[in-house]
């Protein structure tokens, strides 16, 4: 048993580099005893978290990062990484992050939250953190509904997606308002130099690249960086694999992927 568990060091590193070239590696910053993760099958969060984990590994910032998460599905990541973590709710993750960064400017501070926390109940924090150019990285996972509470309409719900429990006839914009576009909104109020991007979970390498750029932006002390990750929620969308992918493609029409340094 012990021989299998502890292979010689040089062999193990050979194995790692070999797997790197074929498949994305299992991030080193993962907390292994919390795997398998707690997210629903088919959820987009683990893809975002895996890409974030790889970005953290590549930037070698595991020991100086703090990972701050919000209520809702993102809180399932409270022990996802072997990285110091805490959790709040209602988008207050952003104030906690900026309070931490102001007290420890050398830390790499990541606020990780959903579209409800960032764009609805905690919107003011996102707006003012952008205006003040707080030197933190904010990652918003946009799955176009309130996942943890059972699939209610979110500020990001679009007409073309499967009905939500609180807009069972679809989001009729005349009655229920228009979907909110986070990155586009921040662009309008942002400060020159800020990094703002939207990427989606169906293109993990590009997603990793944007996350890495956002973190590097913070490490270079260039101010606020923001990535929206457009994501899947098959459990609440009630979609099979093909429909899930099709829904994400429709969502991309409404929420195009892009990146911008203002």
């Amino acid at each position: 048993m012990s021989a299998r568990r502890r292979p010689p060091k040089n062999k193990s590193s050979q194995k790692n580099s070999a797997s790197n070239s074929v498949l994305p590696s299992f991030p080193k910053c993962y907390k292994k005893n919390s795997k398998p993760h707690k997210f629903c099958p088919g959820c987009g969060h683990p893809i975002v978290l895996k890409m974030l984990g790889q970005a953290i590994d590549e930037l070698k910032i595991q020991n100086k990062s703090v990972f701050l998460i919000d209520i809702g599905c993102s809180l399932l990541a409270w022990d996802f990484y072997n990285i110091d973590t805490t959790q709040t709710h209602h988008g207050r993750t952003i104030p906690v992050a900026l309070g931490f960064k102001r007290a420890n400017p050398e830390a790499v501070v990541i606020a990780y939250l959903g579209d409800g926390g960032a764009y609805s109940i905690g919107m003011q924090h996102l707006v003012h953190a952008t205006l003040r150019n707080e030197n933190i990285t904010t990652i918003v996972v946009n799955n176009m509904n309130y996942g943890m509470t059972g699939g209610q309409m979110a500020p990001t719900t679009i007409t073309e997606q499967p009905p939500t429990t609180t807009a069972p006839f679809g989001r009729k914009e005349k009655y229920l308002g228009t979907p909110l576009k986070g990155p586009e909104m921040l662009e309008k109020i942002g400060v020159p130099g800020q990094y703002i991007a939207r990427m989606s979970v169906d293109v993990p390498p590009q997603l990793k690249l944007t996350l890495k750029k956002a973190l590097q932006h913070q490490m270079d002390k260039k101010g606020f960086s923001f990535v929206e990750a457009l994501s899947y929620c098959p459990n609440n969308w009630k979609t099979n694999a093909a429909e899930t992918i099709a829904t994400l493609q429709k969502a991309k029409q409404e929420f195009p992927t892009y990146e911008k340094e203002l």
Partner: peptide
């Protein structure tokens, strides 16, 4: 801050950083 929630939670953030 923009409101009292920010004041309260940013204070928590700084306390977490010691």
């Amino acid at each position: 801050c923009e409101d009292e929630m920010t004041s309260g939670f940013a204070m928590i953030g700084s306390c977490l950083a010691g």
